[in-house]
């Protein structure tokens, strides 16, 4: 057994400390140590995007980040997207547009799309497709996902 390291982070706005082995990825730490299983593993090599989280303001595939690298970091996961019992407009738009079938890729898509809309509130279809190209979905053919992001962008702009 390897010695564990004490890592201090902020996750979804709350201070969270955890112990991790040097070889454990941030994805493993979130899921197996902290218990936040909303972030999914699809490939463990950075190609499917199911494990996308926001790390210090940037989206990353958490399977390619080591847990110990997260020392001092501010992390946002799917569990932090809704505010209390209020779904984020993107989450609502995914439901209303039937933008999920099996749902395994959905947390990654919502975290990615939120980060897009944070920077670019009115993206074109191409900008949405380009931004989401690191998130694989095998069920939907992306049509309804792209429409959900467009719908959420519109509603968020109307609300602001």
């Amino acid at each position: 057994m390897t010695t564990k390291t004490h890592v201090q982070t902020t996750i979804n706005g709350e201070p969270v400390d955890f112990l991790c082995e040097p070889r454990q990825s941030l994805l493993e730490c979130l899921r197996d140590v902290v218990g936040l299983t909303g972030t999914k593993e699809g490939c463990n090599d950075g190609n499917c995007g199911a494990c996308t989280v926001k790390l210090d303001g940037r989206i990353v595939t958490s399977c390619l980040v080591l847990g110990v690298e997260a020392q001092g970091a501010d992390i946002e996961t799917i569990e932090g997207v809704a505010e209390g019992t209020n779904l984020h407009p993107l989450q609502l738009a995914f439901l209303e547009n039937a933008a999920l079938q099996c749902g395994i890729c959905t947390p990654g898509f919502i975290v990615s799309a939120k980060s897009l809309l944070d920077q670019n509130p009115n993206p074109t279809e191409h900008e949405i497709r380009f931004w989401l190209a690191n998130n694989l979905c095998r069920c939907t053919g992306y049509d309804k996902i792209v429409r959900a992001v467009q719908d959420a962008a519109k509603k968020m702009q109307e609300a602001s």
Binding site: T37, K40, I78, L100, I104, P107, I110
Partner: peptide, 19 residues
């Protein structure tokens, strides 16, 4: 209609096999 399992699946609460 909105699917019955929708809220769990957009918030990361739904429990899949590896979870």
């Amino acid at each position: 209609p909105i699917r019955h399992d929708g809220a769990d699946k957009v918030t990361g609460r739904a429990i899949y096999g590896p979870d």
